[in-house]
Write a protein that binds this DNA or RNA. Structure first.
Lengths: 345, 345
DNA sequence: CTGAAAGCGCTTACAG
DNA sequence: CTGAAAGCGCTTACAG
């Protein structure tokens, strides 16, 4: 517990354990067997290190090593079930593979994204994973110039391999579900409204494709005014709907849980007209299934996406190659409370 | 875009820009004005660095510097609105203060918590913040031996200063709200049930205190069987309630949103008896206010907690000092949909 | 206004 | 079985 002015180094331990700094180093980093250091010495060193509360100086250690095993990830948000789960599982899975995960949250800000990626390169990351990045190609270009591997997750790029959900297929089955449920519960299924997301963003564009495709397959025309891709913000989703008061059966395709927050706010203002609304959401939240009117949610297969992307670390893969991971569809009961699970995507 | 075998260093740039490595270093780290290096040279160096996609080697840089400005945080989860928000805002606020935040997620595993803290010390963090740690004192002891400052957030410790919510006061106003709403909506207010959390954990214990205090103040006795502190797991919360079928007005104090997930699952199984249940939850989730039967949630003041704890970085404060931050109470309308906001704690 | 040089704490071939 | 020594890429007094 004593306060040391300077942190304990291998030289301090060498002195205390009556050994050479090299011996201490190799005992502490596990290469001592290869160096055939005696068990006795190894134990003495370990004990002294423990007693001194020694922690290796990662800076010095990494500076000397050839590979850092640091793997960096940028992620738009933590305070979101999808990205929170990605960050959490990523750290766990990377650790299990003997890597040192470093995650940083960039708030959907392109400038911050780039700065953060640069920072990860500074930290000698062997690989940088851009999750949901606005401009992944800029990051890849920088990484490539620095000789660092880069990979894209969730949103694809053209300058590095990408792993993304099959958004089109997922959106299509969700659209089908909402249309079916409107038909079953209201006897009618007019064109749905598409709420939230940004069409300049690849995922939203693919989801809109799936959305339109399913309508087309059923011979339902979608008026242009039904596409309300107002961005990733609850306020904007609520604002886009605020003037609208349903007078008949209404179905919504909600693109992202953040848009869903806006939608439920709007629903709260409707009063009894709320009963005329059914919706489904692309992206899952544990409370989603208990929201009145919610018929189902698409859950992206985070585990599968991460194991796919982690499998690419250190491997050669053509830039621009996009790997699609199927989504899961979760359907909720007509009472809006008991969730059932199904396959989709 | 060219692949370099070795990463670009200041020596490469020095050669290309026809300058000395020292000059390059001071241009790139911003100390060049102090060294009165010519603007011309500075510009040349900056341009070459940019063209080469140079990123400083943080390892080498930090190894040489006296202060790292790295500030570490361990957090139990990202996939949780409260902790996700803490991690996200922490990174943002730390950056705004010129620090380099490094956050790692430890899944409520005491061993992982300690390992992660050790890793942060290895990374030369100037300060380690233990958020919601199971055994913060063990981390503080280690940090203190290494001469590193440590602070506790959310759960207090005795070996370092702590910043926590005023859980007792928050729980008391939430209990009062639930009792009042049961009285208003059912005409009766028997003892509530306390669901979720772990009583060995400081926060749950304080919340139970507030819970019991409010009952006592109203002369309501709480049967022992009404305390179902089954841990931080939706499954366990659901299991604790699974045998119970309300036959009369029932109020629940739900301790944590993870327990709330279990509670709403149970509610879904009740059918019409669901209408006999009112509950409130300690911790906030954006969808919480739209769940049927939810009368209110306590929101912890993450921003205030973080600015308090960040204000302590680099400062001397007595170990064991606990700083309490008031919580906010959010009340939801009787329709279970429109949220109102009030003050509590 | 600018450069040569020492040194941060490690790791690892190399030489016993 | 073990140690002395070089060097990773920076920063910063120090000496011009």
């Amino acid at each position: 517990m004593k306060k040391t002015p300077r942190r304990t180094t291998i030289y301090d331990i060498a002195q205390l354990a009556d050994a050479s700094p090299s011996a201490v180093s190799s005992v502490l980093n596990g290469t001592w067997k290869k160096r055939r250091i005696s068990v006795k010495l190894a134990e003495r060193v370990t004990q002294v290190a423990e007693a001194q509360g020694y922690a290796v100086n990662a800076q010095a250690s990494l500076l000397r090593r050839e590979k850092s095993n640091v793997i960096g990830m940028i992620v738009p948000k933590y305070d979101n079930r999808y990205f929170g789960q990605i960050a959490e599982r990523f750290e766990e899975m990377a650790r299990a593979r003997g890597l040192f995960p470093v995650v940083t949250c960039t708030q959907r800000d392109p400038e911050l994204e780039f700065e953060a990626a640069k920072e990860l390169v500074s930290w000698q990351a062997d690989c940088v994973i851009s999750t949901g990045a606005t401009d992944p190609d800029r990051i890849s270009a920088f990484c490539s110039a620095a000789g660092v591997q880069s990979l894209n997750l969730d949103l694809p790029g053209t300058a590095a391999p990408s792993v993304v959900s099959d958004n089109r297929a997922g959106a299509r089955v969700l659209t089908a579900l909402i249309l079916d449920r409107c038909a079953a519960e209201f006897g009618t299924s007019g064109a749905l409204r598409f709420v939230g997301g940004r069409l300049s963003d690849h995922n939203s564009a693919r989801r809109l494709e799936g959305f339109l495709e399913e309508h087309r397959a059923r011979g339902i025309e979608v008026p242009e005014a039904h596409v309300l891709a107002t961005g990733y913000s609850a306020d904007k989703a609520a604002a886009a709907l605020s003037g609208f008061r349903p007078t008949g059966p209404t179905g919504l395709f909600v693109n992202s849980t953040i848009a869903l927050e806006g939608v439920v706010r709007w629903l709260g203002e409707l009063g009894p007209a709320m009963d005329l609304v059914r919706y489904g959401c692309f992206d899952w939240d544990p409370f989603g299934g208990y929201l009145p009117g919610n018929v189902g949610m698409v859950e992206q297969d985070v585990e599968a996406m991460l194991s796919r992307v982690l499998g690419m670390v250190g491997e050669e893969a053509p830039a621009g190659e996009v790997s699609y991971v199927p989504c899961l569809l979760r359907e909720f009961g007509a009472d809006g409370v008991s969730p059932r699970t199904g396959q989709g995507g």
